[in-house]
Nucleic acid binder design. Structure first.
Length: 587
RNA sequence: GGCCUCGUAGUUCAAUGGAUAGAAUAGAAGUUUCCUAAACUUUAGAUCCAGGUUCGAUUCCUGGCGAGGCUACCA
């Protein structure tokens, strides 16, 4: 890392000495593999100072650097590209450093606290594929921020109250016959989801009956008896009616038991859980505050609004005419609650991009309220997950259930492992763990290798595939290393005489890994880790194929290769830990 | 209608404004007396269209065309 600094300093010196260029931003990039060299400096921007041809300018700087920087063993010039070649000695010292001191990720920040809100489920139905992307992404971001020096609070805001839960409750009351998870053998969240579907079935029927009777469709939606009953139930909930509250507690309990199983299998966890039932009234005082200070305004009917037209948005309601709050009000209050609880420097919302507008407004409102933490808000806006047949629609039953999906990928890992027949001596428990590690790993990797911000296609058939750019590919490279280390008697680093191409590329990739960890944090994007780790695993497989490690002729070569392999293994494992994916020792 | 994303090999994804646009998968052809072939090698195949800025554009700007999202006193 500091070598690059040194290189930049010397390059600046070169520009100053040769062309009297004052301080500029110096950038090096990795040399394109199609060309000879390690780092490349592009000289085009400096031609107007040097007043020479690109080739000559690059050559002059190259000559300067070769003389001044001992690690630069040679250079070549292609058009305006100065390709610096570094000595093997330098790369060997990098390998030695990593091998002896372990993987080091320099902290990006100090004493920075960040609250990451993710998952945030509704408690009326089980989790689906979209939630999996959210959870896996949120968890990974937490790990990545931690690795960069942040103090992270993993936070879940459970939406446990509202019309949607009342629908499930009502349907259960009417048609449940006292069914419980125990009596039915159905996982709690799925059972509650079943009644949510049941509600909708009857509700749709009522609507169409009303519409046939000549009622307007929108009106019918509101006037359907079931909807009236639901609203009444919500009303009773707010009034604290005992019977409703106890049913609510019972059914939410079922859901939490179910979620725990799903979260556990998915390997995600939280440090702090908020429940909307506790927080939904928050924010009203802040709305009043804003009204008094004049940043909000009131309409004739008494509703409170914020005018964001000067920011290019429109007017947004913050409180209904009847004094009740809306989503935005609650989020204002919850942001304040978070700040009171944690005093965080940053707070991140892992929420789908259909809420881009909402979070833009939220941040503007917090700024208008002069909240000191407003600038620390970041909406990690991830794209929707599409299926090959199109969008997921719960109404049309095309949602991919989280539990079923996990079962499927683990099952695929099992059958493929059995087919290969390499694990016959493993016991039942080891095998079960292995299938989970492979299957859940494959699923997570599939979701994380894509840029978080982009919408992505989820092909179920492809997700259970375990070859190519997949978690098992990387896990396989790791188990090869683990197997080597079991067979090796020592993994102490020894200086080799020189480096072959494959060894060098492993060192280069490992040297670059901390940059990927930084970039992943800066961009809130785990896929940068996934890509880095994949490249490394691929390079290792090639190295492994081309060269004998334990059978190397020279003992020093053998020791070097073992130590190098060990460092690769540690890097792969580190990267996977940031993605929330386990590594098997055998497969 | 207004606002916001996104258009890259058959398919799914990469590419701080840099060189000859990378992978994976599907296709074709190979590699195992040798540390795990879930691997490795070779091969064919792409920047939606038209302008502009730039020494240089997949990347930035404008206009088309196409896909998606938001545009609720729902959360």
């Amino acid at each position: 890392m500091d070598f690059i600094q040194e290189l930049k300093t010397q390059t600046q010196n070169a520009l100053t000495d040769l062309y009297t260029i004052e301080k500029v931003e110096i950038n090096f990039e990795q040399t394109n593999p199609n060309f000879e060299g390690d780092f490349t400096f592009v000289v085009f921007p400096y031609l107007r100072y040097s007043k020479k041809k690109p080739e000559d300018t690059a050559a002059e700087i190259g000559e300067y650097l070769r003389e001044k920087v001992k690690e630069v063993s040679n250079y070549n010039v292609v058009k305006g590209f100065l390709n610096l070649e570094l000595s093997d000695t330098y790369w060997i010292s990098v390998a030695s450093e990593i091998s002896n001191n372990g993987l080091r990720i320099p902290a990006l920040v100090k004493n920075q606290k960040v609250v990451v809100e993710y998952s945030s489920p509704n408690t009326n139905k089980p989790l689906h594929l979209g939630h999996i992307r959210n959870n896996v992404l949120g968890y990974s971001i937490c790990k990545i921020l931690e690795a960069n020096g942040y103090d992270v609070i993993k936070n879940n805001l459970v939406n446990d109250r509202g019309v949607h839960i009342c629908k499930s409750m009502l349907a259960w009351q009417k048609w449940g016959n006292g069914e419980t998870p125990e009596s039915s053998g159905i996982k709690g969240d799925h059972l509650v989801g079943k009644y949510y579907v049941e509600f909708d079935k009857h509700y749709q029927k009522q609507i169409s009956e009303l519409v046939e009777g000549g009622t307007d469709k929108d009106l019918a939606k509101n006037e359907a008896p079931l909807m009236k009953e639901t609203r009444q139930m919500l009303q009773q909930w707010e009034e604290g009616k005992q019977e409703v509250l106890s049913l609510w507690k019972k059914m939410n309990g079922w859901v939490y038991d179910g979620f725990d199983v799903t979260y556990n299998r998915l390997g995600v966890s939280f440090d702090k859980i908020y429940y909307v039932s506790d927080t939904y009234l928050l924010g009203k005082e802040l709305v009043q505050e804003g009204l008094e200070s004049g940043v909000f305004f009131q309409k004739d009917d008494g509703s409170v609004w914020v005018d964001l037209t000067s920011e290019g948005l429109d007017e947004k309601i913050l409180q209904r005419a009847d004094g009740t709050s809306v989503y935005m009000t609650q989020d204002i209050g919850t942001a304040d609650l978070k700040f009171n609880d944690f005093g965080m420097d940053k707070f991140i919302y892992v929420v789908g991009n259909e809420q881009d507008y909402h979070f833009k407004v939220l941040q503007l409102v917090l700024k208008k309220l002069n909240k000191p933490y407003a600038d620390g808000l970041y909406h990690l806006s991830y794209g929707m997950v599409d299926l090959p047949e199109g969008k997921m629609k719960s109404r049309e039953g095309t949602v991919v259930d989280a539990d079923e999906l996990m079962e499927e990928v683990v099952g695929a890992a099992k059958s493929q492992t059995e087919e290969l027949g390499k694990t016959e001596d493993m016991n039942e428990e080891e095998l079960t763990n292995l299938y989970e590690t492979l299957g859940i790993g494959a699923l997570k990797y599939y979701l994380l290798k894509v840029d978080a911000k982009k919408r992505m296609m989820f092909d179920p058939n492809e997700s259970i595939q375990l070859q190519g750019d997949t978690a098992p590919f990387i896990q396989y490279a790791y188990t090869r290393i683990a197997s080597l280390l079991r067979a090796a008697d020592s993994s102490d680093f020894e200086m080799p005489d020189n480096l072959n191409e494959e060894e060098k590329s492993l060192i280069v990739l490992m040297n670059n890994y901390p940059n990927a960890v930084h970039a992943a944090a800066t961009h809130y994007n785990p896929s940068e880790i996934a890509n880095a780790v994949y490249e490394l695993a691929k390079a290792f497989n090639k190295f492994y194929h081309e060269h004998s490690i334990l059978g190397a002729k020279e003992n020093s070569t053998k020791q070097f290769r073992i130590a190098l392999s060990k460092a690769v293994g540690e890097t792969l494992k580190h990267g996977f830990s940031l993605l929330g994916i386990d590594m098997p020792e055998r497969m």
